[in-house]
């Protein structure tokens, strides 16, 4: 464990807590894409298959439970909670996220480190995580008015993967056999998808104006 990875995990944890806090306290999911949340639940479900078979550390197991629990409860809130679901904007959240799942699955079957069920599922979760934010970014472009919590949620989500890139660079130089091109490339693609959001987020923060994304 290194500081970049720990900071990345904490930033990732903060992003889901900000989202849960928003939904739980103001009982609203306005501006949140259910599709992105469903994709994230699928990412964790396919990545943490080793939850009960490979024990790595208490930290690792605990964080996996938190990420699984929070992502599925966020989906539950938006889908079934009688108050929250009313603020879900399904007419705007129209990204066909199934078109993301299939290509990621096919790609995982083609390009993976080892052709086993667990390894293909793990690779699928990496590819899917890289594109999972797209429905959310599309929704932000459409709804234009980004409330603070949603902006912070997306920012933290992007920052966590950027910190992971620093972690991969650190591990590459400190651990002789640590080479994972698939992880690195999908992580880089994921972070690049946030690039324009980061730009507008910092612009709004610097000029102290409300965050607006160009149409």
């Amino acid at each position: 464990m290194n500081i970049f990875r720990f900071a990345g995990d904490m930033t990732h944890l903060a992003s889901v807590l900000v989202l849960l806090l928003k939904i739980h306290t103001i009982k609203s999911c306005a501006g949140i894409s259910l599709k992105t949340q469903e994709l994230y639940a699928l990412v964790f479900a396919t990545r943490y298959l080793d939850l009960f078979t490979d024990y790595i550390s208490l930290y690792n197991t605990l964080m996996k439970l938190i990420f699984l629990g929070s992502s599925f409860s966020i989906v539950w809130y938006i889908r079934y909670h009688k108050i929250v679901r009313r603020s879900y904007d399904k007419d705007q959240d129209t990204f066909r996220h199934y078109f993301l799942v299939l290509p990621c699955l096919l790609l995982a079957l083609l390009i993976n480190e080892k052709f086993t069920f667990r390894e293909v599922m793990w690779t699928f979760s990496l590819y899917l995580e890289a594109v999972a934010i797209l429905p959310q970014l599309v929704l932000l472009q459409r709804t234009r008015n980004i409330d603070n919590l949603t902006g912070q949620y997306v920012f933290l989500l992007g920052a966590y993967r950027a910190l992971y890139i620093l972690n991969w660079i650190y591990r590459y130089f400190t651990e002789p056999h640590y080479v994972h091109w698939i992880t690195w490339i999908s992580g880089l693609v994921q972070t690049l998808l946030y690039a324009d959001f980061f730009y507008y987020y910092f612009q709004s923060w610097k000029n102290n104006v409300k965050l607006e994304l160009p149409a």
């Binding site: 996996k64 080892k114 390894e119 793990w122 992880t183």
Partner: peptide, 10 residues
């Protein structure tokens, strides 16, 4: 195990 495959990350 997970360590060797590098899947020790979240």
């Amino acid at each position: 195990n997970a360590e060797s495959q590098g899947h020790d990350e979240l």
